[in-house]
Design a protein around this nucleic acid. Structure first.
Lengths: 193, 193
DNA sequence: GATATATGCGGAGCATTACTCCGCTTAACA
DNA sequence: TGTTAAGCGGAGTAATGCTCCGCATATATC
């Protein structure tokens, strides 16, 4: 049934190079706040035709997802490291702060999510899974150690943070977001009977 | 300096009626999840020309803001009532839950915010002020009564809730959001020394 | 090297949609 | 009932997402 044909040829080198160029240009544009940049313009800056762009990324969302996938991976990969270095609750706190830092520094994830969540939730669902797994590991460890409540849904924490990042604006935003991290942690703590 | 000319005539009745129709249709569409509905279609459903739509609402954002302004007002107006009926912390909790209910029932605020926050933050800033005032009143009362921490920024709570509403999806969302309310309240509580 | 061919390139062209412009209509006022 | 300006309507414009298909070229074979 699964008639997967092994590719007979190696992928063409120029194809991969163009793909890289497109991702680089798109990431730069999104980071600079040009979330609504016309795709023609992305193709032009990358020095390829519009057709090439659409072959690599069948629509706008696909391009955006590809750009952020790498970023999200890096964020997710930090989770195990932190878990190894800190006690559970502090690892969770550290990761959440890292999340904030990440958004603050790059200002990349938030604006992109905005344009997407409305239409195709699929993107968020797919990319989000990576982050979900990351935070779930941290939370379950903290639950196991008895530090935080068992009925915490890790996704709730993630959603709250992502939400705050949406409205990131003004200079005081970052400290405000970190305050929220502390509130969330405190609110998740197991009420010592 | 303020050369405000008193309008010489009363506004035309059909003008107001058309405006109402447009708002009604737009609200219905947005509530039904058709956030990306073409404006021509809105005009058509309202039985007016596209030109009429654009005279009343110079662009898409203006229409969306007008639709939600009324909703937000109702939400904000509930705050004083709740404050009169409950002790401070419970009033705050009740209002936050109401916020969630509101979004859950209407599914109106969230998808609209999505399409907007990215581009023009002005809308959120303007409409948001209404909600900001509402929650600030509740929070400061709870601070005054000594129930919650003084360094809580009401906006943080609001942002977290709004954020969760952005990713509202799936059946279990509402209960999840209410759990978050409790987490936020618990995390805001003054640590009794 | 030379040849064959699949893989990838490129941009003209189509469809959709936000927004404008201006002549016509009609409600408000005398 | 006549005058007038506020308001109506939709054809038209510009911008943008996306498709299609002939052409170019990197890869594999001899």
């Amino acid at each position: 049934m699964t008639d997967e044909k092994k590719p007979r040829r190696r992928p063409r080198s120029d194809g991969q190079r163009n793909r890289e160029n497109l991702l680089t240009v798109a990431k730069a544009a999104f980071t600079a706040g040009e979330v609504d940049i016309p795709l023609d313009e992305v193709a032009r800056r990358a020095g390829v035709g519009i057709g090439t762009l659409y072959r690599h990324f069948p629509n706008r969302d696909a391009l955006i997802e590809a750009v952020y996938r790498a970023e999200l991976d890096r964020l997710a990969n930090a989770a195990p490291t932190l878990a190894a270095q800190h006690p559970p609750v502090e690892a969770l706190r550290a990761w959440m702060r890292l999340f904030v830092d990440y958004i603050a520094a790059k200002q990349v994830i938030a604006p992109a999510l905005n344009g997407l969540v409305g239409g195709t939730c699929a993107l968020y669902a797919q990319s989000g899974t990576i982050l979900q797994n990351a935070i779930e590991g941290l939370v379950s460890a903290a639950v196991a150690s008895g530090d935080i409540n068992a009925d915490i849904d890790p996704l709730d924490l993630l959603r709250a943070l992502a939400g705050v990042s949406n409205y990131a604006a003004g200079p005081g935003w970052e400290t405000s977001a970190k305050r929220l991290v502390d509130i969330l942690i405190a609110g998740s703590r197991r009420t010592t009977p």
